[in-house]
Design a protein around this nucleic acid. Sequence first.
RNA 1: GGCGUGGUGCCCAAGUUGGUCUAAGGGAGUGGUUUGCAAAACCAUCAUUCGCCGGUUCGAAUCCGACCCACGCCUCCA
Length: 468
Amino acid sequence: MSIRFYNTITRQKEAFQPLETGKVKMYTCGPTVYDYAHIGNYRTFIFEDLLRRYLEFRGFDVNQAMNLTDVDDNTIRRSRERDISLTELTDEFKAAFHADLKTLNMQAAQNYPEATNFIPQMINMISDLETKGYTYTTPDGSVFFNIGKYEQYGKLANLNPDEMLSGGRVADDSYEKEGARDFALWKGYKAEDGDVQWESPWGKGRPGWHIECSVMSTELLGPHFDIHCGGVDNIFPHHENELAQSVCATGADFVNYWLHSEYLLVDNKKMSKSLNNFYTLRDLLDQDYPAEAIRWMLITTHYRQKLNFSVSRLEEAQKAVNRLREFYSKLKAYDGSGEEDAEDQIRVADEQFTSAMDDDLNISGGLAAIFELVRWGNRSMVEGRLSATGANDLIILIRKFDHVLGVLDMESGLNVEIDADFIESKIADRNEARANKDFTTSDAIRDELVALGVELIDTPEGTKWKMK
RNA sequence: GGCGUGGUGCCCAAGUUGGUCUAAGGGAGUGGUUUGCAAAACCAUCAUUCGCCGGUUCGAAUCCGACCCACGCCUCCA
Protein backbone atom coordinates (compact mmCIF):
# COMPACT_ATOMS: atom_id res chain seq x y z
CA MET A 1 0.00 0.00 0.00
CA SER A 2 1.13 3.45 -0.70
CA ILE A 3 0.44 6.80 0.85
CA ARG A 4 -2.38 8.77 -0.71
CA PHE A 5 -2.82 12.52 -0.50
CA TYR A 6 -5.65 14.75 -1.53
CA ASN A 7 -4.15 16.97 -4.18
CA THR A 8 -5.79 20.38 -4.37
CA ILE A 9 -5.01 20.83 -8.04
CA THR A 10 -6.71 17.62 -9.17
CA ARG A 11 -9.28 17.63 -6.35
CA GLN A 12 -8.81 13.97 -5.60
CA LYS A 13 -6.69 11.60 -3.60
CA GLU A 14 -3.64 10.36 -5.45
CA ALA A 15 -0.98 7.80 -4.66
CA PHE A 16 2.11 9.58 -3.45
CA GLN A 17 5.12 9.03 -5.65
CA PRO A 18 8.16 11.17 -4.85
CA LEU A 19 10.35 12.40 -7.65
CA GLU A 20 13.33 10.68 -6.13
CA THR A 21 12.84 7.32 -4.43
CA GLY A 22 12.91 7.58 -0.67
CA LYS A 23 13.22 11.34 -0.63
CA VAL A 24 10.66 14.08 -0.29
CA LYS A 25 11.14 17.74 -0.97
CA MET A 26 8.49 19.93 0.57
CA TYR A 27 7.95 23.64 0.72
CA THR A 28 5.65 24.95 3.38
CA CYS A 29 4.39 28.50 3.55
CA GLY A 30 5.42 30.08 6.80
CA PRO A 31 4.34 33.21 8.62
CA THR A 32 4.56 36.88 7.83
CA VAL A 33 6.58 38.13 10.75
CA TYR A 34 4.82 41.36 11.68
CA ASP A 35 3.08 40.09 14.81
CA TYR A 36 2.69 36.95 16.89
CA ALA A 37 1.17 34.10 14.93
CA HIS A 38 -2.20 32.93 16.28
CA ILE A 39 -3.16 29.33 16.79
CA GLY A 40 -5.11 29.31 13.55
CA ASN A 41 -1.79 29.94 11.84
CA TYR A 42 -0.28 27.20 13.93
CA ARG A 43 -2.91 24.78 12.84
CA THR A 44 -1.38 24.90 9.39
CA PHE A 45 2.20 24.75 10.58
CA ILE A 46 1.44 21.87 12.87
CA PHE A 47 -0.33 20.04 10.05
CA GLU A 48 2.83 20.47 8.05
CA ASP A 49 4.77 19.12 11.01
CA LEU A 50 2.49 16.10 11.19
CA LEU A 51 2.90 15.49 7.47
CA ARG A 52 6.64 15.80 7.77
CA ARG A 53 6.78 13.46 10.76
CA TYR A 54 4.56 10.89 9.12
CA LEU A 55 6.66 10.86 5.97
CA GLU A 56 9.65 10.21 8.19
CA PHE A 57 7.73 7.49 10.00
CA ARG A 58 7.25 5.88 6.61
CA GLY A 59 10.96 6.01 5.99
CA PHE A 60 11.30 9.02 3.74
CA ASP A 61 14.17 11.40 3.96
CA VAL A 62 12.38 14.74 4.07
CA ASN A 63 13.88 18.02 3.02
CA GLN A 64 11.62 20.84 4.16
CA ALA A 65 11.86 24.56 3.59
CA MET A 66 9.57 27.00 5.38
CA ASN A 67 9.70 30.61 4.33
CA LEU A 68 9.42 33.66 6.52
CA THR A 69 7.91 36.68 4.83
CA ASP A 70 9.79 39.61 6.22
CA VAL A 71 8.88 42.30 3.73
CA ASP A 72 5.34 43.08 2.58
CA ASP A 73 2.58 45.62 3.21
CA ASN A 74 1.93 44.39 6.74
CA THR A 75 5.51 44.35 7.94
CA ILE A 76 6.21 47.78 6.47
CA ARG A 77 3.05 49.30 7.90
CA ARG A 78 3.65 47.84 11.34
CA SER A 79 7.26 48.96 11.51
CA ARG A 80 6.23 52.49 10.62
CA GLU A 81 3.43 52.45 13.20
CA ARG A 82 5.93 51.44 15.82
CA ASP A 83 8.53 53.78 14.40
CA ILE A 84 11.22 51.14 14.22
CA SER A 85 13.14 49.72 11.30
CA LEU A 86 11.74 46.85 9.30
CA THR A 87 14.55 44.61 10.48
CA GLU A 88 14.01 45.50 14.10
CA LEU A 89 10.36 44.53 13.79
CA THR A 90 10.83 41.31 11.87
CA ASP A 91 13.73 40.14 14.03
CA GLU A 92 11.45 40.35 17.04
CA PHE A 93 8.78 38.17 15.49
CA LYS A 94 11.15 35.77 13.81
CA ALA A 95 12.51 35.00 17.26
CA ALA A 96 9.00 34.66 18.68
CA PHE A 97 8.04 32.30 15.87
CA HIS A 98 11.01 30.03 16.40
CA ALA A 99 10.30 29.94 20.11
CA ASP A 100 6.70 28.94 19.40
CA LEU A 101 7.80 26.17 17.07
CA LYS A 102 9.82 24.74 19.92
CA THR A 103 7.00 25.11 22.40
CA LEU A 104 4.68 23.20 20.10
CA ASN A 105 7.36 20.58 19.53
CA MET A 106 7.53 21.05 15.79
CA GLN A 107 10.52 19.56 14.09
CA ALA A 108 12.89 22.09 12.65
CA ALA A 109 12.83 22.43 8.89
CA GLN A 110 16.14 22.16 7.07
CA ASN A 111 15.74 25.73 5.91
CA TYR A 112 13.83 28.83 6.97
CA PRO A 113 14.52 31.14 4.04
CA GLU A 114 13.72 34.80 4.61
CA ALA A 115 12.48 36.91 1.74
CA THR A 116 14.91 39.78 2.22
CA ASN A 117 17.85 37.44 1.73
CA PHE A 118 16.74 36.58 -1.79
CA ILE A 119 16.10 39.93 -3.44
CA PRO A 120 18.74 39.54 -6.19
CA GLN A 121 17.37 36.12 -7.11
CA MET A 122 13.85 37.55 -7.23
CA ILE A 123 15.00 40.30 -9.55
CA ASN A 124 16.56 37.63 -11.75
CA MET A 125 13.37 35.65 -11.96
CA ILE A 126 11.33 38.73 -12.74
CA SER A 127 13.81 39.68 -15.48
CA ASP A 128 13.53 36.19 -16.80
CA LEU A 129 9.75 36.47 -16.95
CA GLU A 130 10.12 39.85 -18.59
CA THR A 131 12.42 38.42 -21.24
CA LYS A 132 9.93 35.68 -21.94
CA GLY A 133 7.15 38.21 -22.38
CA TYR A 134 4.96 37.49 -19.39
CA THR A 135 5.19 40.92 -17.84
CA TYR A 136 4.60 44.59 -18.37
CA THR A 137 5.86 47.62 -16.55
CA THR A 138 3.76 50.53 -15.36
CA PRO A 139 4.80 54.18 -15.11
CA ASP A 140 5.30 53.96 -11.35
CA GLY A 141 8.07 51.41 -11.81
CA SER A 142 6.03 48.33 -10.96
CA VAL A 143 6.19 45.08 -12.87
CA PHE A 144 3.06 42.99 -13.30
CA PHE A 145 2.49 39.44 -14.37
CA ASN A 146 0.03 39.26 -17.23
CA ILE A 147 -2.17 36.29 -16.43
CA GLY A 148 -3.57 36.37 -19.94
CA LYS A 149 -0.24 34.97 -21.10
CA TYR A 150 -0.61 31.87 -19.00
CA GLU A 151 -3.43 29.66 -20.21
CA GLN A 152 -3.52 27.46 -17.16
CA TYR A 153 -4.14 30.39 -14.81
CA GLY A 154 -6.90 29.54 -12.35
CA LYS A 155 -6.38 25.80 -12.47
CA LEU A 156 -5.22 25.38 -8.91
CA ALA A 157 -7.96 27.48 -7.34
CA ASN A 158 -10.57 26.27 -9.81
CA LEU A 159 -11.42 29.80 -10.76
CA ASN A 160 -12.23 31.05 -14.19
CA PRO A 161 -10.27 34.28 -14.79
CA ASP A 162 -13.01 35.65 -16.98
CA GLU A 163 -15.52 35.43 -14.18
CA MET A 164 -13.28 36.81 -11.50
CA LEU A 165 -13.64 40.44 -12.41
CA SER A 166 -16.96 41.15 -10.72
CA GLY A 167 -15.91 40.76 -7.14
CA GLY A 168 -12.56 42.45 -7.54
CA ARG A 169 -11.60 45.62 -5.81
CA VAL A 170 -10.37 47.27 -8.94
CA ALA A 171 -10.94 50.79 -7.73
CA ASP A 172 -9.02 50.19 -4.53
CA ASP A 173 -5.89 49.15 -6.25
CA SER A 174 -3.45 51.97 -6.27
CA TYR A 175 -1.19 50.44 -8.87
CA GLU A 176 -1.92 51.07 -12.51
CA LYS A 177 -2.15 47.55 -13.76
CA GLU A 178 -3.80 46.72 -17.06
CA GLY A 179 -5.91 43.79 -16.01
CA ALA A 180 -7.66 43.73 -12.66
CA ARG A 181 -6.46 40.21 -11.95
CA ASP A 182 -2.85 40.73 -12.88
CA PHE A 183 -0.56 40.70 -9.90
CA ALA A 184 2.60 42.51 -8.93
CA LEU A 185 6.00 40.91 -9.29
CA TRP A 186 7.78 44.10 -8.34
CA LYS A 187 6.26 47.11 -6.62
CA GLY A 188 7.63 50.51 -7.53
CA TYR A 189 8.71 52.62 -4.58
CA LYS A 190 6.07 54.70 -2.82
CA ALA A 191 6.49 57.15 0.03
CA GLU A 192 4.69 54.80 2.43
CA ASP A 193 7.51 52.34 2.02
CA GLY A 194 9.85 54.59 3.99
CA ASP A 195 13.40 53.35 3.71
CA VAL A 196 12.36 49.89 2.55
CA GLN A 197 13.68 49.75 -0.99
CA TRP A 198 16.04 47.91 -3.30
CA GLU A 199 17.56 48.91 -6.60
CA SER A 200 16.32 47.03 -9.64
CA PRO A 201 16.29 47.26 -13.43
CA TRP A 202 12.88 48.95 -13.02
CA GLY A 203 14.04 51.47 -10.46
CA LYS A 204 13.72 51.48 -6.69
CA GLY A 205 11.11 49.28 -5.17
CA ARG A 206 10.40 46.01 -3.41
CA PRO A 207 9.24 42.54 -4.40
CA GLY A 208 5.61 41.52 -4.70
CA TRP A 209 4.44 38.94 -2.22
CA HIS A 210 4.27 35.85 -4.40
CA ILE A 211 7.64 35.98 -6.06
CA GLU A 212 9.55 35.13 -2.88
CA CYS A 213 8.11 31.64 -2.67
CA SER A 214 8.76 30.87 -6.32
CA VAL A 215 12.35 31.97 -5.92
CA MET A 216 13.15 30.44 -2.57
CA SER A 217 11.59 27.08 -3.38
CA THR A 218 13.50 26.94 -6.63
CA GLU A 219 16.73 27.92 -4.92
CA LEU A 220 16.44 25.39 -2.13
CA LEU A 221 14.48 22.51 -3.62
CA GLY A 222 14.88 23.00 -7.34
CA PRO A 223 12.31 24.11 -9.93
CA HIS A 224 10.31 20.89 -9.56
CA PHE A 225 9.66 19.33 -6.17
CA ASP A 226 7.17 17.06 -4.43
CA ILE A 227 4.91 18.81 -1.97
CA HIS A 228 3.78 22.35 -1.37
CA CYS A 229 1.58 23.16 1.62
CA GLY A 230 -0.26 26.02 3.18
CA GLY A 231 -3.64 27.01 4.54
CA VAL A 232 -6.62 26.98 2.19
CA ASP A 233 -6.47 30.74 2.13
CA ASN A 234 -3.17 30.44 0.31
CA ILE A 235 -4.72 28.62 -2.62
CA PHE A 236 -5.85 31.88 -4.09
CA PRO A 237 -4.22 34.11 -4.90
CA HIS A 238 -0.86 33.17 -3.45
CA HIS A 239 -0.29 29.63 -4.67
CA GLU A 240 -2.08 30.23 -7.93
CA ASN A 241 0.28 33.12 -8.63
CA GLU A 242 3.33 31.25 -7.48
CA LEU A 243 2.46 28.42 -9.80
CA ALA A 244 2.06 30.76 -12.74
CA GLN A 245 5.35 32.54 -12.07
CA SER A 246 7.34 29.40 -11.52
CA VAL A 247 6.06 27.46 -14.47
CA CYS A 248 6.50 30.43 -16.79
CA ALA A 249 9.95 31.28 -15.48
CA THR A 250 11.51 27.83 -15.24
CA GLY A 251 9.48 25.77 -17.68
CA ALA A 252 9.40 22.98 -15.09
CA ASP A 253 6.29 21.43 -13.53
CA PHE A 254 6.91 23.13 -10.17
CA VAL A 255 4.86 21.09 -7.69
CA ASN A 256 3.44 17.56 -7.81
CA TYR A 257 1.21 17.60 -4.74
CA TRP A 258 -0.55 20.63 -3.30
CA LEU A 259 -1.83 20.05 0.22
CA HIS A 260 -3.90 22.65 2.04
CA SER A 261 -5.20 22.69 5.57
CA GLU A 262 -8.61 24.02 6.57
CA TYR A 263 -9.33 26.88 8.90
CA LEU A 264 -9.45 26.97 12.63
CA LEU A 265 -12.78 28.51 13.62
CA VAL A 266 -14.00 30.33 16.67
CA ASP A 267 -17.76 30.24 17.19
CA ASN A 268 -18.00 28.84 13.68
CA LYS A 269 -16.21 31.78 12.17
CA LYS A 270 -12.73 31.79 10.73
CA MET A 271 -10.12 32.79 13.27
CA SER A 272 -8.42 35.86 11.89
CA LYS A 273 -6.68 39.03 12.83
CA SER A 274 -9.31 41.12 11.12
CA LEU A 275 -12.22 39.59 13.03
CA ASN A 276 -10.20 39.96 16.19
CA ASN A 277 -11.31 36.54 17.38
CA PHE A 278 -7.85 35.04 17.62
CA TYR A 279 -5.74 33.54 20.34
CA THR A 280 -1.99 33.46 20.24
CA LEU A 281 -0.07 30.56 21.66
CA ARG A 282 1.08 32.81 24.47
CA ASP A 283 -2.51 33.75 25.32
CA LEU A 284 -3.34 30.12 25.95
CA LEU A 285 -0.16 29.27 27.80
CA ASP A 286 -0.75 32.26 30.04
CA GLN A 287 -4.14 30.81 30.87
CA ASP A 288 -2.35 27.62 31.88
CA TYR A 289 -3.43 25.51 28.94
CA PRO A 290 -0.46 23.22 28.39
CA ALA A 291 1.33 23.19 25.07
CA GLU A 292 0.73 19.47 24.60
CA ALA A 293 -3.03 20.00 24.83
CA ILE A 294 -2.83 22.70 22.18
CA ARG A 295 -0.70 20.52 19.93
CA TRP A 296 -3.03 17.55 20.41
CA MET A 297 -6.13 19.58 19.69
CA LEU A 298 -4.65 21.01 16.49
CA ILE A 299 -3.28 17.72 15.28
CA THR A 300 -6.16 15.37 15.97
CA THR A 301 -8.81 16.80 13.72
CA HIS A 302 -8.22 15.89 10.12
CA TYR A 303 -6.38 18.69 8.37
CA ARG A 304 -9.00 19.20 5.67
CA GLN A 305 -11.79 19.50 8.23
CA LYS A 306 -12.72 22.81 9.78
CA LEU A 307 -11.90 22.78 13.46
CA ASN A 308 -13.96 24.82 15.85
CA PHE A 309 -11.74 26.04 18.66
CA SER A 310 -12.99 26.02 22.23
CA VAL A 311 -11.58 25.73 25.69
CA SER A 312 -13.47 22.51 26.33
CA ARG A 313 -11.71 20.95 23.37
CA LEU A 314 -8.40 21.85 24.91
CA GLU A 315 -9.46 20.14 28.09
CA GLU A 316 -10.53 17.02 26.21
CA ALA A 317 -7.26 17.07 24.35
CA GLN A 318 -5.33 17.22 27.58
CA LYS A 319 -7.17 14.17 28.88
CA ALA A 320 -6.41 12.19 25.77
CA VAL A 321 -2.73 13.08 26.01
CA ASN A 322 -2.78 12.08 29.64
CA ARG A 323 -4.26 8.73 28.82
CA LEU A 324 -1.43 8.03 26.42
CA ARG A 325 1.20 9.34 28.82
CA GLU A 326 -0.18 7.34 31.73
CA PHE A 327 -0.05 4.22 29.64
CA TYR A 328 3.52 4.93 28.69
CA SER A 329 4.66 5.48 32.26
CA LYS A 330 2.77 2.42 33.46
CA LEU A 331 4.64 0.40 30.87
CA LYS A 332 7.94 1.78 32.00
CA ALA A 333 7.13 1.02 35.63
CA TYR A 334 5.74 -2.42 34.86
CA ASP A 335 7.58 -5.15 36.73
CA GLY A 336 5.15 -8.01 36.12
CA SER A 337 6.39 -11.31 34.89
CA GLY A 338 3.45 -12.56 32.87
CA GLU A 339 3.78 -15.02 30.05
CA GLU A 340 2.09 -13.08 27.29
CA ASP A 341 4.00 -11.09 24.74
CA ALA A 342 2.34 -8.39 22.65
CA GLU A 343 3.35 -9.39 19.16
CA ASP A 344 -0.12 -9.78 17.70
CA GLN A 345 -1.47 -6.60 19.21
CA ILE A 346 1.59 -4.67 18.12
CA ARG A 347 1.33 -5.91 14.57
CA VAL A 348 -2.36 -5.09 14.38
CA ALA A 349 -1.94 -1.64 15.88
CA ASP A 350 0.97 -0.84 13.63
CA GLU A 351 -0.86 -1.96 10.51
CA GLN A 352 -4.06 -0.21 11.47
CA PHE A 353 -2.26 3.01 12.33
CA THR A 354 -0.25 2.97 9.13
CA SER A 355 -3.08 2.16 6.80
CA ALA A 356 -5.23 4.88 8.33
CA MET A 357 -2.49 7.47 8.13
CA ASP A 358 -1.57 6.39 4.61
CA ASP A 359 -5.05 7.46 3.62
CA ASP A 360 -4.42 11.18 3.46
CA LEU A 361 -3.32 11.35 7.11
CA ASN A 362 -6.48 9.93 8.62
CA ILE A 363 -5.48 10.76 12.15
CA SER A 364 -8.76 9.63 13.74
CA GLY A 365 -8.27 6.15 12.42
CA GLY A 366 -4.67 6.22 13.54
CA LEU A 367 -5.60 7.25 17.05
CA ALA A 368 -8.26 4.58 17.25
CA ALA A 369 -5.55 2.02 16.58
CA ILE A 370 -3.37 3.49 19.31
CA PHE A 371 -6.10 3.68 21.94
CA GLU A 372 -7.27 0.17 21.26
CA LEU A 373 -3.73 -0.92 21.97
CA VAL A 374 -3.69 1.20 25.11
CA ARG A 375 -6.79 -0.49 26.45
CA TRP A 376 -5.43 -3.95 25.71
CA GLY A 377 -2.08 -3.10 27.26
CA ASN A 378 -3.61 -1.64 30.41
CA ARG A 379 -5.75 -4.69 30.89
CA SER A 380 -2.92 -7.12 30.40
CA MET A 381 -0.88 -5.21 32.94
CA VAL A 382 -3.72 -5.09 35.47
CA GLU A 383 -4.17 -8.80 35.07
CA GLY A 384 -0.44 -9.43 35.20
CA ARG A 385 -0.51 -11.33 31.93
CA LEU A 386 1.96 -9.12 30.11
CA SER A 387 5.56 -10.27 29.90
CA ALA A 388 8.52 -7.99 30.45
CA THR A 389 9.42 -8.41 26.79
CA GLY A 390 5.88 -7.52 25.81
CA ALA A 391 6.02 -4.35 27.88
CA ASN A 392 9.31 -3.43 26.31
CA ASP A 393 8.01 -3.99 22.80
CA LEU A 394 5.02 -1.82 23.59
CA ILE A 395 7.28 0.95 24.81
CA ILE A 396 9.16 0.81 21.53
CA LEU A 397 5.95 0.95 19.52
CA ILE A 398 4.52 3.85 21.50
CA ARG A 399 7.73 5.76 20.96
CA LYS A 400 7.46 5.00 17.27
CA PHE A 401 3.93 6.38 17.18
CA ASP A 402 5.08 9.37 19.13
CA HIS A 403 7.54 10.20 16.45
CA VAL A 404 4.43 11.15 14.51
CA LEU A 405 2.36 12.63 17.33
CA GLY A 406 5.16 14.34 19.23
CA VAL A 407 3.45 14.74 22.59
CA LEU A 408 5.12 12.36 25.01
CA ASP A 409 8.10 14.48 25.90
CA MET A 410 6.65 17.94 25.53
CA GLU A 411 7.16 20.58 28.14
CA SER A 412 3.88 22.15 29.09
CA GLY A 413 5.28 25.62 28.78
CA LEU A 414 4.04 26.79 32.14
CA ASN A 415 6.25 29.32 33.78
CA VAL A 416 5.63 28.00 37.24
CA GLU A 417 8.43 28.14 39.74
CA ILE A 418 8.40 24.82 41.54
CA ASP A 419 10.32 24.14 44.70
CA ALA A 420 10.78 20.42 44.32
CA ASP A 421 12.58 19.96 47.63
CA PHE A 422 9.69 21.51 49.50
CA ILE A 423 7.21 19.19 47.82
CA GLU A 424 9.38 16.14 48.43
CA SER A 425 9.62 16.95 52.11
CA LYS A 426 5.85 17.34 52.33
CA ILE A 427 5.44 13.97 50.65
CA ALA A 428 7.81 12.41 53.15
CA ASP A 429 5.78 13.90 56.02
CA ARG A 430 2.61 12.61 54.50
CA ASN A 431 3.94 9.11 53.99
CA GLU A 432 5.06 9.04 57.57
CA ALA A 433 1.55 9.95 58.66
CA ARG A 434 0.11 7.32 56.34
CA ALA A 435 2.41 4.70 57.78
CA ASN A 436 1.01 5.64 61.19
CA LYS A 437 -2.55 5.51 59.81
CA ASP A 438 -2.88 9.16 60.67
CA PHE A 439 -5.05 9.90 57.67
CA THR A 440 -6.24 13.22 59.00
CA THR A 441 -2.72 14.58 58.74
CA SER A 442 -2.02 12.87 55.42
CA ASP A 443 -5.15 14.31 53.85
CA ALA A 444 -4.34 17.75 55.20
CA ILE A 445 -0.97 17.60 53.47
CA ARG A 446 -2.60 16.44 50.25
CA ASP A 447 -5.02 19.35 50.39
CA GLU A 448 -2.23 21.77 51.10
CA LEU A 449 -0.36 20.65 48.01
CA VAL A 450 -3.48 20.60 45.85
CA ALA A 451 -3.95 24.24 46.75
CA LEU A 452 -0.50 24.86 45.29
CA GLY A 453 -1.48 23.04 42.11
CA VAL A 454 0.43 19.90 42.97
CA GLU A 455 -1.27 16.57 42.54
CA LEU A 456 -0.08 13.48 44.40
CA ILE A 457 -0.40 9.99 43.01
CA ASP A 458 0.22 6.99 45.20
CA THR A 459 1.64 4.10 43.27
CA PRO A 460 3.23 0.78 44.21
CA GLU A 461 6.58 2.42 43.54
CA GLY A 462 5.91 5.25 45.95
CA THR A 463 4.24 8.62 45.83
CA LYS A 464 4.66 10.67 42.69
CA TRP A 465 3.59 14.23 42.02
CA LYS A 466 2.83 16.44 39.11
CA MET A 467 1.59 19.93 38.50
CA LYS A 468 -2.10 20.63 38.09
C1' G B 1 -23.68 35.47 -9.40
C1' G B 2 -19.43 31.57 -9.94
C1' C B 3 -16.65 27.77 -7.21
C1' G B 4 -16.29 24.65 -2.83
C1' U B 5 -16.80 22.19 2.13
C1' G B 6 -19.60 20.16 6.02
C1' G B 7 -24.27 18.36 8.72
C1' U B 8 -23.14 10.85 12.42
C1' G B 9 -24.77 9.43 20.10
C1' C B 10 -24.72 14.52 25.55
C1' C B 11 -19.83 16.85 23.20
C1' C B 12 -15.59 15.91 19.63
C1' A B 13 -15.09 12.55 15.61
C1' A B 14 -13.88 8.12 11.85
C1' G B 15 -16.50 5.62 8.32
C1' U B 16 -19.26 8.13 2.70
C1' U B 17 -15.61 3.68 -4.74
C1' G B 18 -23.28 0.00 -0.93
C1' G B 19 -23.43 -5.60 2.62
C1' U B 20 -17.70 -7.28 7.76
C1' C B 21 -22.07 -0.59 10.52
C1' U B 22 -26.04 -5.31 15.12
C1' A B 23 -21.89 2.70 13.18
C1' A B 24 -14.37 3.00 15.39
C1' G B 25 -11.76 6.09 18.83
C1' G B 26 -11.53 10.28 22.58
C1' G B 27 -14.28 13.19 26.31
C1' A B 28 -18.64 13.45 29.63
C1' G B 29 -22.46 10.44 32.33
C1' U B 30 -24.22 6.00 35.03
C1' G B 31 -23.29 1.24 37.75
C1' G B 32 -19.30 -1.94 39.48
C1' U B 33 -13.90 -3.71 40.61
C1' U B 34 -9.38 -1.94 42.73
C1' U B 35 -7.70 1.78 46.39
C1' G B 36 -7.21 4.20 53.81
C1' C B 37 -8.59 8.64 50.77
C1' A B 38 -7.40 10.62 45.97
C1' A B 39 -5.59 9.76 41.00
C1' A B 40 -4.96 6.28 37.27
C1' A B 41 -6.56 1.65 35.49
C1' C B 42 -10.14 -2.26 34.51
C1' C B 43 -15.35 -4.23 33.58
C1' A B 44 -20.40 -2.99 32.17
C1' U B 45 -23.68 0.59 30.16
C1' C B 46 -24.19 4.77 26.66
C1' A B 47 -27.11 5.99 18.29
C1' U B 48 -32.27 -0.08 15.44
C1' U B 49 -29.54 5.36 14.08
C1' C B 50 -26.26 8.64 10.40
C1' G B 51 -29.75 17.13 8.58
C1' C B 52 -34.89 16.50 6.08
C1' C B 53 -38.06 14.23 2.14
C1' G B 54 -38.37 10.99 -1.81
C1' G B 55 -36.00 7.35 -5.15
C1' U B 56 -32.60 3.22 -6.88
C1' U B 57 -31.34 -1.71 -4.70
C1' C B 58 -32.27 -8.17 -2.18
C1' G B 59 -29.52 -4.50 0.88
C1' A B 60 -27.67 2.71 1.84
C1' A B 61 -24.66 6.70 6.83
C1' U B 62 -22.54 5.32 2.11
C1' C B 63 -25.59 5.92 -4.84
C1' C B 64 -29.45 9.50 -7.35
C1' G B 65 -32.94 13.89 -7.00
C1' A B 66 -35.10 17.93 -4.30
C1' C B 67 -34.95 20.74 0.08
C1' C B 68 -33.16 22.93 4.91
C1' C B 69 -28.97 24.60 7.80
C1' A B 70 -23.78 26.15 8.70
C1' C B 71 -19.19 27.72 6.82
C1' G B 72 -15.46 29.18 3.19
C1' C B 73 -13.09 31.14 -1.49
C1' C B 74 -13.69 34.59 -5.77
C1' U B 75 -9.89 40.89 -2.00
C1' C B 76 -4.48 41.07 2.54
C1' C B 77 -4.91 36.43 5.35
C1' A B 78 -2.37 29.85 7.82
